[in-house]
Amino acid sequence: MTEDAAPVVTPPAGITTRWAPAISTAETRAIVGSPRAVRRRVGSSDLEVFPIALSGNVFGWTADSAESERVLDSYVARGGNFVDTADSYAGGRSEIILGNWLRARGARDDIVLATKVGKSADHPGVSARAITAAVEASLRRLRTDRIDLLYLHIDDPDVPFEETLLAVDELVRSGKVRYFGGSHHTGDRLIEARIASAQLGVARMVALQNHYNLVFRSEYEQGLAGIAATLSLGVMPRFALASGFLTGKYRSKTDLDRTRRAEVGRYLNRSGMRVLQALDVVAAEHDAPLATIALAWLLSKPDVVAPVVSASAADQVFDLVAAAEVNLTRSQLTALDRAGS
C-alpha cells in the first residue's frame, strides 16, 4: 500500500464524557459546527481540492463496503472533495466501492476523483496498450466517464516516455482523463517527461504524489521540492503519517505488536522519538491530536496541495480533516523542522 491508514482516535481534547469512551465525527460536528471548505489548486490545472486527500487504499481491505461508505460520507460532510484510489488497491475492489458510492450519492460532479494505473495484475506497466486498457477498466469500476487526475503509479525506464505521454494525451483529448501526474518518479525523469511533452505538444504532468512526512524528508526536500516548484507540480505527499507512527501511538517495541505495519519499526529510534516529543508539545498548544499537527506541518510546505491519508473507520476522519484548519506559528514550524532534520 502507498498511503497511511489513520489510527482509531479519541475525541478532540476538551470534549469529554464520563458515560462514553468515544465521540463520533457526526456528534463532534454537531458540537463544533462545520468549517468553511477551503480549497487549493492542483499545480497548473483548474482542479480545486480540499487540502486533505482521502485515500481509498483501505477500501475493500481493512474497511468493508459499508464502513468505506461511512468514511466517505464523513469526509464529504467535513468539506472534503478529493478522493484518491488506484486500480491495484484491493485488486480493483477499492474502485468498485468508490464507484458505487459516487453513483448512490449522486456525488460525481462534487468530487475530484484521482486514480492510478500501472500496478494492476490485469494491465501492468505504462505502455500505451496497458495505460489505455487500465483506464477503460477503471472507468467501468468507478462508474464514471472521466478521471479528474490520473497518476502513473510506476515509472518504467524501459518504456519510452514518448509512448506513455502520447497514450495519456489521447485519453485527455477524448475527455476520459482531465489531468495527469507522476508517482515514484525521480527528479530527472520528471524533467525528462516535461521536455518530451513540450517536444510532442501533448498534455504535461500537473501533479506529483511522493513519499514525504516529518520523519522521511530528504528524498523530497533535497531534490524533488525544487523540481516540483520549477515544473509547477502540485504535490500530494503519501505516507503522510509515516504508516501511523506520527499519530504517536507507537513509542516502544511493545506497541508494534498492535500493528501489521512492519515499516513503523524503522522510526523507533532517537530521531523518531525527538519528532514525537516536538509533536507532543505543539499538539498540546493547539489542543489537537498529533496526526492533525503532522498533517498541518506538511500543509505549510511550498507546493504541497493535499497530503494523502486513509481511514478505516468514519470516526478517524475528524482528526485528519482538522489539519486544514490549523495554522502553525513560525516558532512551532521551526521546532518541528529542527526535530525532524
Rank of each mutant, 00 (worst) to 15 (best):
V9T: 15
W19K: 08
P21W: 08
T28C: 13
S34P: 09
R36W: 00
A37G: 08
S44Y: 02
V49F: 06
P51F: 07
L54Q: 15
L54T: 07
W61C: 01
S68G: 11
S68F: 11
L72I: 15
L72T: 06
G79C: 08
F82K: 10
T85R: 12
G91R: 01
G92F: 06
G92A: 06
R93M: 12
I96H: 00
R108D: 06
D109Q: 13
D110G: 07
A114R: 01
S120M: 05
V126T: 15
A128Q: 08
A130E: 13
I131D: 05
T132A: 02
L139K: 11
R141M: 02
L142T: 09
D145C: 03
D145T: 14
D148P: 03
P157V: 09
V168E: 02
V168F: 01
V168C: 00
L171D: 12
V172C: 13
F180P: 01
H185A: 10
T186H: 06
T186L: 07
G187K: 07
A198D: 15
A198Q: 15
G201E: 07
Q209P: 02
R217I: 14
Y220T: 04
Q222Y: 11
G223W: 03
A225P: 01
G226P: 04
A229S: 14
G234E: 05
V235C: 02
M236E: 13
M236R: 00
F239A: 06
K253A: 14
T254Q: 12
D257W: 00
T259H: 03
A262R: 04
G265R: 02
V275H: 04
Q277L: 12
D280K: 05
V282F: 05
A283P: 04
E285R: 14
E285P: 00
H286G: 07
D287K: 06
L298Y: 03
L299Q: 14
P302H: 08
P302F: 02
P307M: 03
P307K: 01
V309D: 02
L320F: 11
A322F: 05
A324F: 07
E325V: 03
N327G: 04
N327Y: 02
T329N: 00
